[in-house]
Design a binder for these strands. Structure first.
Length: 552
RNA sequence: GCGCCAGUAGCUCAGUAGGAUAGAGCAACGGCCUUCUAAGCCGUCGGCCGAGGGUUCGAAUCCUUCCUGGCGCGCCA
């Protein structure tokens, strides 16, 4: 049982016995400063405020009553403003070790999400070029969020939306054909807004090998062939990059297939039927203002073409039909203006109990030695995700992406990410895991059988120093940390927890020489504690998609 | 002009469904390796939480008005 729930139950039981209701504003939570005990409650303060009485007297009365009851409480202190500060007996915390070792890889998992059906759509980069570092951040975020949601009892499906239907596809094909034409001598100039990256030349090269007749065939056909070859190649490259980054999408959803199925027209019709669309200046508009947007939006242009927004509405309609209760879209922050529009659309679709949540990912500033590295998609000088992975590896990149909340800018310094210091926390956390395993290996060398170690309370009772308790309390907080990260869709909560846990471990390691203790029981107890710590570090890193090395 | 996000220690950032004396790392300075990995640990220094007003027992957190920075405001995707 969690400390928070335990104290709450105690307090509620006491109040009920006195015929009082538990006040709405009352809470039980870990104090920010551990000097105040393990848990704190403001219940006396709130009751006093309601009854215009003295908080101290009420607090004193509750304290006396609870001390008279058999419990896990070590002490209850009363703080000045009317807070009750609870300290639990070491035995309460010591049993955490047994729970962790028993549950192993699933320690931390809870039924918090109640099996809620969630879809996470992320990356969804246009297939017009390789993934760059910004996409990497979205990929790390979406993937870790998925893992965390699953660990907290959500039923999650992951998806990549392929924008393969727009004018940009033609532009891509034209860019490739233009590069190919430089070889074949066909008169086909490079388009003004074409894609200038070197990868276009590579694709053109490949296209010529596959279809040497590119120089002479019909121009429209040539463009469409080039488009197809380019999209296939680029998409394959994207999949390869994501695989290298330990990221997997279950569903790859094509915009083109959505349009071809007539779903977009159907959605368009549905909006008209509901009187939510109107014609003006030869175009069709969707009244998003009725749902909180600041202006209405065009869904079919005066030339008859449907807009990107139209297919996006249809796409989210499709998601709703698939039964998701929560749709999480991870977007670059430069799309934030799009949020009210799509929220309006989802609301207009009228599915009850469906929530839409856009998670915005801010820009990544790529640096090297503190100096900005120039990036420009148009000019083709961007740094690709693949290049970053080549240089720093997946673990370091992922941890760095997840070490900030998603809606703040992130400085990604290639030199710093390779450093081995607290500046680069991935090593700090991984090192904690490696250190523990080093101790365990040494223990085996000294003839201690790790398998024979059992977390009996008599053994664990020797975990009584400040450092023991600090570590135990942190370990006990892991499940609620995951719930908090899930509820706020914020994997960085977990990153910070892991840094704190690693810090506690490093401190422990320095203060207590585990294998050097005189007392055999103490050695065993501490080995159990370290083993449990390694388990939690491993579980936590796993949810971030980062490995936990046995040695470094 | 309208909107979104941000402004917390010299630097990079946590903390915001209201809770106590606001935290961490880096940098600076001073310590700790004959003992399980010093990729580590300990200590010192460092703050009008952008500014003003309001709400209340209590505000970094909520409301409001400003200031500063980034981004977005298309019959583009």
């Amino acid at each position: 049982m969690r400390a928070q729930d335990y104290i709450t139950t105690l307090l509620q039981g006491h109040l009920q016995g006195k015929g009082f209701e538990w006040p709405d504003k009352a809470n039980v939570e870990p104090p920010k400063d551990k000097r105040f005990g393990d848990m704190a409650s403001n219940v006396a303060l709130v009751l006093a405020s309601q009854a215009k009485a003295k908080p101290r007297a009420i607090a004193e009365e509750i304290r006396e009553a609870l001390l008279g009851v058999e419990s896990e409480l070590e002490s209850i202190e009363i703080a000045g403003p009317g807070f009750l500060n609870f300290t639990l007996k070491p035995a309460f915390w010591q049993q955490t070790v047994g729970e962790i070792l028993k549950q192993g890889d699933v320690y931390g998992q809870t039924g918090f999400g109640n099996g809620r059906k969630v879809q996470v759509e992320y990356v969804s980069a246009n297939p017009t070029g390789p993934l760059h570092i910004g996409h990497g951040r979205g990929a790390a975020l979406g993937d870790s969020l998925t893992r965390i949601l699953r660990a907290t009892g959500h039923d999650v499906s992951t998806e990549y939306y392929i924008n393969d239907a727009g004018r940009q596809m033609r532009m891509l094909g034209m860019s490739v054909l233009a590069r190919a034409s430089e070889k074949t001598g066909r008169d086909f100039p490079f388009p003004d807004d074409g894609y200038k990256g070197d990868y276009i030349r590579d694709i053109a090269e490949m296209a010529l090998q596959q279809a040497p007749e590119l120089g002479t065939m019909d121009e429209v056909e040539a463009v469409s062939l080039c488009t197809r070859i380019a999209v296939d190649d680029i998409l394959q490259g994207i999949k390869d990059d994501l695989a290298r980054f330990n990221v997997e999408h279950q569903v790859w959803f094509s915009e083109k297939s959505l349009v071809a199925s007539g779903a977009v027209d159907k959605t368009f019709q549905l909006l008209k039927d509901h009187g939510l669309a109107f014609e003006q200046d030869g175009a069709f508009w969707f009244k998003t203002t009725e749902f909180g947007d600041d202006k209405d939006r065009v869904i079919r242009k005066s030339d008859g073409q449907l807009t990107y927004f139209a297919s996006d509405i249809a796409y989210h309609d499709d998601k709703c039909r698939r039964g998701f209760q929560l749709m999480v879209d991870i977007w670059g922050a430069d799309h934030h203006g799009y949020v009210p529009r799509l929220s309006a659309a989802v609301e207009a679709l009228g599915y009850p109990d469906v929530a839409f949540k856009a998670v915005l990912v801010q820009l990544v500033n790529l640096l090297r030695g503190g100096e900005p590295v120039a990036m420009s998609t148009r000019g083709g000088t961007f740094v690709t995700l693949a290049e970053v992975l080549d240089e720093v590896g997946s673990d370091a990149a992922r941890f760095m992406f997840l070490s900030r909340k998603s809606d703040s800018h992130l400085d990604f310094d290639l030199d710093l990410v390779k450093q081995r210091s607290m500046d680069n926390p991935v090593y700090y956390v991984q090192y904690a895991h490696a250190r523990i395993n080093s101790v365990r290996r040494k223990a085996v060398e000294r003839g201690i059988s790790l398998e024979a170690l059992a977390p009996e309370s008599a053994v664990l009772a020797s975990l009584s120093t400040q450092e023991d308790l600090d570590l135990l309390k942190l370990l006990a907080r892991f499940p609620e940390t995951l719930e908090s990260a899930a509820a706020t869709l914020s994997p960085h909560v977990l990153s910070y927890y892991l840094m704190e846990l690693a810090g506690a471990l490093h401190r422990y390691y320095t203060v207590h020489h585990v294998l050097g203790a005189e007392d055999e029981t103490l050695i065993r107890a501490r080995l159990l504690l370290l083993t449990a710590t390694a388990q939690v570090v491993r579980n936590g890193l796993g949810l971030l998609g980062v490995s936990a090395p046995e040695q470094m």
